[in-house]
Amino acid sequence: MVLVARPEVYFTFYPVGAAVSQGLVEIAGEHPVPRGEVFPAVYRREGASNREGRVLAWLICDGTKETLVRELSEEQRHLSIASIWNHEALVHYLTQEWRPEQDIGVPPEPRVPAAPPEEPKAEQPTDKPRHVRHYLYFATARVGKAVAAQLATQGYEVTSRESADGKNWLVLAEHHIRDAEQSLDSAREALARVAREHSGEYDGYEIEVS
């Protein structure tokens, strides 16, 4: 209750179901979100970066509107950064007492003589494939094993076993992607559809931090 009542510092996404099933965390309790506290309407995410991983421009997201900026204002520096943290990343950032205002990227050096600003190039997909794990749960081992066999034929590396709580059957589907945004969205939709078709549940994913 004390944690829920405190003012928000920032938000991020964390696959709780997957972490619980692996024994990385335990559910200590739950409490409803206070009235008026909703998903932040305004946040930021990377708009463009160079080969060294330095952020050259940020996208300020306000509902369906996105504004590209090269340098963050003082107010924009405190906006949450939309991202998905696996367990290792979550522990690291919490122990380091990380805050969004500490992650402002490095703007490009101005040219001399000054010239009209150029539009930043869209972020290019990395050439290095990134490892992704998807978690699907089913009521019985028979259904879970059937789904595992189906996904194996589709190129996934599949692990099929009883879940940590002993109540469901876990199907862990792993693969590698290069274009994180497009390939990941496509895989999530396809796996969620497979789970629904077999009366199961798609419980999120973990992606390798680059």
Rank of each mutant, 00 (worst) to 15 (best):
H78G: 07
L191Q: 04
D62V: 04
S163E: 01
G17Q: 10
R130G: 04
E30H: 11
A195P: 04
P110L: 12
F39R: 11
E118H: 10
C61Q: 08
Q182L: 15
V55K: 00
G105D: 04
E97W: 08
V9M: 04
E181S: 07
T67V: 04
H198W: 14
G166N: 00
R45V: 00
A152G: 15
V147Y: 03
L3Y: 04
G53V: 11
G53N: 02
P110K: 08
Q182F: 15
A122I: 11
F11R: 14
R111I: 07
G166D: 00
P113M: 05
E206I: 03
G63K: 08
V33I: 14
Q124D: 07
V55Q: 02
A139G: 10
G155D: 06
V4K: 13
A195I: 07
E123Q: 14
D203L: 06
V194R: 11
T95Y: 10
I104N: 05
F13I: 09
G200K: 04
W58R: 08
S49W: 00
V106P: 00
W98G: 03
Q96N: 09
V4G: 13
E8F: 05
E101A: 15
I177E: 09
W169R: 01
V38W: 14
G105T: 07
D203Y: 08
A5E: 10
G29Y: 05
V33S: 13
